[in-house]
Design a binder for these strands. Structure first.
Lengths: 200, 200
DNA sequence: TGCAAAAACTAATATTATTAGTTATTATAT
DNA sequence: ATATAATAACTAATAATATTAGTTTTTGCA
């Protein structure tokens, strides 16, 4: 009956991550988390701002981790090679952390600033990876949006079991990424155009 | 106090759709739906198999509607033009029905057969749209997976507010779709390869 | 007109999130 | 070393939701 001590935020996040990634984010409740930590549900409020706060902390932590991995993957590479490494690492993360990945893109919670910040850093990283291609700033923005769509779309559909057939998913992913990468020069040389809008 | 009558499944689905699309799927509860319909929560069980059953019915109905719109968009067109029309209609649907769209890709519920069936029809439709390109069956499967990733990825990120900058989203979408479409010939002529796997 | 089926209802239970108020433990400061 | 302040656990209570069981009302048909 010893009152438990020494529970800190990282331990809470670690336990929550495990629940979210192994049983799905709908199974991550304050009740299930408290049970896993051998404390009572209300005690969690000492560490986290309710369920929305918990999810947000998980999202922030997960996005930071993803950013680190992506940075590491891109360091020392450029051009197509860098983007392919980025893409592989992205999917790897989504597969290793399905729950956290989903939370990463969820509705902004209490503490949304941190998530937004890391999101911005991630876009900056992509912006740097675009430099090799000699695109306009505006073109880069559109291309980055496209790339994010590609990566997230595949990861999300795969996670939800959207791809039924027993055909190698890694091959599909490589084909998708290669196709997109191959299209970037077409944006550069005007075969695929981005008419300038007013708002810059 | 007259006990209400004449409530049928379509009316239930209509009301649920409205809640899901205007307030988000997390706001679609049996309680909120019952209130909208002026009945008590348990009465909903006469029409629907609990909350999972409701969500599934919504998903099935929504996917059927999407399939119809996509079929209509593709009729009389082929090749790039057909795919672009398909893509535009897809995004249009996701924007008009954000809640239902999200449910469409959710976890398979009680009645998952109908959703799976329509999903198969949708892939068949795409398979027909691929015919113009002269691809292998296997190549077509990979390309379709890619196209679905592209469309879903953009729709999903847009819905979650993932694109922050005040730059025209329709332009980004067109660029993304065009880039992908432009890549299909590269698959055809072997510049982007799909090594054959064992499992057919 | 009566009867069977459908669809509403009330009542009750379990789960979850959350708030308020309390107690115990830890760390600090005298 | 001891008193005190802060931290983090706890219990108790409330509200919202989903769900089941059992009942009543209404409808449509025989």
């Amino acid at each position: 009956m010893s009152p438990r001590i020494g529970l800190d935020l990282p331990a809470v996040i670690r336990a929550a991550t495990e629940i979210a990634d192994t049983h799905g984010i709908e199974s991550l409740t304050l009740a299930s988390l408290a049970k896993k930590l051998n404390i009572r549900t209300p005690s969690l409020y000492n560490h986290v701002d309710g369920l929305p706060g918990l999810r947000n902390k998980l999202a922030a932590h997960g996005l930071e981790l993803l950013y680190e991995k992506l940075t590491l993957a891109a360091v020392g590479r450029s051009g197509d090679e860098a983007i392919r490494a980025f893409a592989d690492t992205y999917l790897e993360f989504a597969r290793a952390h399905p729950g956290v990945y989903e939370l990463t893109l969820g509705a902004p919670g209490p503490d949304a600033a941190e998530v937004a910040e890391t999101g911005k850093k991630l876009v900056d990283l992509l912006m740097r990876l675009m430099e090799s291609y000699g695109l306009t700033h505006l073109q880069s923005i559109h291309v980055i949006r496209g790339l994010r769509s590609v990566l997230h779309g595949f990861a999300s559909l795969e996670q939800r079991g959207g791809f039924g057939l027993p055909i190698d998913l890694d091959v599909s992913y490589r084909l998708l990424v290669d196709t997109f990468v191959a299209g970037i020069p077409a944006v550069r040389n005007g075969k695929i155009t981005v008419e300038e809008q007013g708002e810059q």
